[in-house]
Amino acid sequence: MVTMEMDSARVAVLDAADELFYARGVQAVGMDELRTAAGISLKRMYALFPSKSDIVGQVLAGRTAVWNERILAEADRHDSPRDKILSIFDFLDAWFREDNFRGCAFINSFGELGATMPAVADAAHQHKREFVEYVTDLVVEAGCPASLGLQIALLAEGAQTTAAISESPESAIAARQAAAVLLDAAARA
């Protein structure tokens, strides 16, 4: 029973942290506010997470899991590697249109804390590296040079930043069109 209570308290903290950090930034959210939002005592929260850095690391791990799940779910709707690559931008387009879209949590948190919180830098580096590897694997499977993987990943990254800053969800569609041009050119070469 104690383990189940700890698990539910842990989930409550991570859910509250994810929502608050994404909406306002990590530094703007104090531990007392986080504990209140999670509905647990400060002592209990520190028993579960020794530091704010631990919470941030777990939130970013959760964000990676959701990102991967959504990217793969969209890709599973397609058969060819080319269509799976382009489906990344279909996912982005849907995400950018969500009411609570505030950009990439990894870019946001890295910009805010990457230099001072190693857990943030490590999580961001790993997340971005794994995404480039995923795209590169699909690019190679499509018969294109591996170097195209980074180029297409950069289009996705740029679309995220542009959509967040300029509030223009159509960035995903423009990036998708550019990715299609790159894929077609590489296929012809």
Rank of each mutant, 00 (worst) to 15 (best):
F131H: 13
D99G: 10
V13W: 01
A123C: 01
E112D: 08
G25F: 01
R77C: 04
E33L: 10
A187E: 11
A73Y: 02
I107Y: 12
A187N: 09
L14G: 05
V66L: 05
I152H: 03
V66D: 07
D15F: 05
T116M: 00
A175M: 08
A174F: 14
Q160L: 13
A146W: 05
L183P: 12
V2C: 09
Q160N: 14
I88M: 08
D184G: 12
A17Y: 02
R24W: 06
T116R: 01
E157R: 12
G143R: 00
V132T: 11
A185R: 13
G30C: 06
F91M: 12
I165V: 15
A156F: 14
S147K: 07
A178L: 09
D99I: 11
G30I: 11
F49V: 08
D184I: 09
E167V: 14
P169D: 14
A146D: 12
I40L: 01
A119I: 00
F131N: 10
A146N: 04
E69R: 03
K52L: 02
A186T: 12
A17K: 06
D79I: 08
Y134Q: 09
G111K: 03
T136H: 05
L48F: 10
P145N: 02
A178S: 15
V11T: 15
G39N: 01
S41F: 02
V135D: 03
P169C: 15
P50K: 12
E33W: 09
L34T: 11
F106W: 07
I40E: 01
Q177R: 15
A75P: 05
V56N: 04
A153Q: 05
M117A: 00
E141A: 15
L138R: 06
M1W: 09
A16W: 01
Q27H: 07
P118H: 03
A124P: 00
A17H: 03
T64E: 04
F110C: 04
E133D: 13
D122Q: 02
F110W: 11
R176C: 14
A121L: 02
D184A: 14
V56F: 00
A153T: 11
R176L: 04
A28F: 10
H78A: 05
A17S: 04
A172I: 12
C104P: 06
E98P: 07
R82L: 06
F21Y: 15
D32C: 08
M6Y: 13
M6P: 09
F106P: 01
D54C: 04
A153D: 05
S109Y: 10
A180N: 12
G30E: 11
G39I: 00
L92N: 15
T3E: 15
E167D: 15
V13E: 00
A185W: 07
M117W: 03
Y134N: 10
N108S: 07
A185E: 13
V13H: 04
A123Q: 00
G111Y: 03
L183A: 09
L34P: 08
L183N: 05
A47H: 06
R35C: 14
G62H: 00
R10H: 14
A175S: 14
P118N: 02
I55G: 02
F101S: 06
S51C: 02
Q126K: 07
R129V: 06
F110K: 01
K84P: 01
D90Y: 00
